[in-house]
């Protein structure tokens, strides 16, 4: 298997729909791919005790997160027959309705892409040192808890 270097996965602010479209477009030349699987995490306007989440502010322990993401990537590639995998996570403020996580896996046949995408999302949620601070419209906040 070829050596993969740790990639930066973090983008400042929300992930634009046009960025996602461009990522898909870039795979046109890879004609051995038969299926893509995409997960998009969107910030939800949760209502908590009369207050509504207006945005989530993400922070990370970047050096540790990139090392961990690299290890997850290696695991996923050794477990599934993937052609490629791309992961992007927002840092800073992302408003309700905007995208904060983009996981994109591709394979020759669909099953590997679908399963790898799901497992990658689960591992990002539980293993990456990233924290979401939910900011309410009245300027108060609470720290996000992953389910």
């Amino acid at each position: 298997m070829k050596e993969r270097k740790p990639k930066n996965i973090f983008v400042q602010g929300p992930i634009a729909a046009s960025f996602i479209a461009d990522s898909i477009e870039k795979h046109k030349s890879k004609t051995d791919i038969g299926g893509h699987s995409i997960f998009l995490g969107q910030v939800r306007a949760d209502k908590i005790g009369g207050r509504e989440v207006s945005c989530i502010e993400y922070t990370t322990y970047e050096e540790m997160a990139l090392e961990k993401m690299h290890a997850i990537r290696e695991d996923i590639f050794s477990k599934y027959d993937l052609t490629c995998m791309h992961v992007y996570h927002s840092l800073g403020k992302v408003s309700a309705g905007e995208i904060s996580l983009f996981v994109f896996t591709s394979s020759v046949h669909r099953k590997a892409a679908i399963d790898a995408c799901e497992e990658t999302v689960e591992r990002i949620k539980t293993e990456l040192p990233v924290w979401g601070k939910e900011l309410f419209s009245d300027e108060t906040h609470q720290w996000k808890v992953n389910q």
Partner: peptide, 10 residues
């Protein structure tokens, strides 16, 4: 050394 509260990315 780093203190890490429960992760809540995504």
């Amino acid at each position: 050394v780093a203190l890490l509260p429960p992760f809540s990315g995504g």
